[in-house]
Design a protein around this nucleic acid. Structure first.
Lengths: 155, 155
DNA sequence: TTGTGTGGTTGCATCATAAAACCAAATGCC
DNA sequence: GGCATTTGGTTTTATGATGCAACCACACAA
């Protein structure tokens, strides 16, 4: 089998996420959806991608429960695609990608937009990792533990 | 040209990040590197990927300034690959992907590990987005602004 | 009813990926 | 030193994924 590698059965949650949205377009589609786009043509013209690829991606995102087909919205009979909670939950991933680019990109002057607090118009703080008690954690201060076995409910 | 789409010149920082690490393997290589792997063979056997692909990916990551070739470490004459600050800066992206899977995966029981605070052994808190003044922000409470023009330094 | 835009699908050419074979240099063993 | 083995790749070949353009059905507008 020479098929593209799938991570669906992998036990690593990062690999599992990548399996759902690790290709070149899915996260950009989600970005646009978060921005309010819903229609096939909107995605296609905004992202400038081939229609067949968009078609395949939308179907995959629907299959993964990230987008849901919505029957209408403005009364027309056309199909729309709206984010599910799972899809909206990808927002931190997009923010992390954005901040990484803002911090490390070789040509930051080419970046057109910054993410700001709507109320104040000031840039959002960097995402930070904290312990349960609120302590700021560096990568070195974290470690991986085997997932505790799910407690069986009594019969 | 039918070449794979590149986002290098795109003005969106998310697209720019994806251009560097948006393929199926790069983030997993970075994950392993954060875990301490350095050698070609270590990555290859741990990730189970084809050697030619690993070769191409490592070169790309080096070109992007995410990994740096290190002349040695244990005295041997073999090459090693170590994360640069830019590479270590991708950690929040991995955490975001992990947490998304932990929260939304359809089969969370298949996830083998959890990320914990090393000191307490307790799970890390969800990444949260905050304003400059520390207010917790939802996606809807943020917006995009054009990047302010870089102030020219006086001559 | 004819025309136009929307939302796709199909065909084809090209690119990327994967598996396996191959290979040179470094290393380990004696 | 000499030989086998490991390491770190490259090459070859097969196939899946992508991109573009053409095509098409249906909704909608006149």
């Amino acid at each position: 089998m020479v098929k593209r590698t799938r991570f669906e059965g992998d036990s690593c949650p990062i690999a599992r996420s990548l399996d759902a949205l690790g290709d070149w377009w899915s996260l950009l589609i989600i970005r646009e959806a978060l921005f309010g786009l819903r229609r096939f043509g909107e995605f296609q013209s905004k992202l400038g991608m081939a229609k067949n690829i968009l078609s395949v991606r939308l179907r995959a995102l629907v299959d993964h429960g990230i987008l849901a087909p919505a029957p209408a919205s403005d009364g027309s009979a056309y199909q729309e695609y709206v984010l599910t909670p799972k899809g909206r939950g990808a927002f931190p991933i997009l923010v992390a990608l954005r901040q990484w680019s803002e911090e490390f990109d070789d040509h930051p002057e080419e970046i057109a937009t910054i993410l700001v607090d709507r109320a104040k118009g000031r840039p959002v703080k960097k995402l930070e990792m904290r312990a349960e008690d609120g302590r700021l954690l560096s990568p070195a201060e974290t470690t991986l533990k085997p997932r505790p076995a799910r407690r069986r409910r009594s019969a």
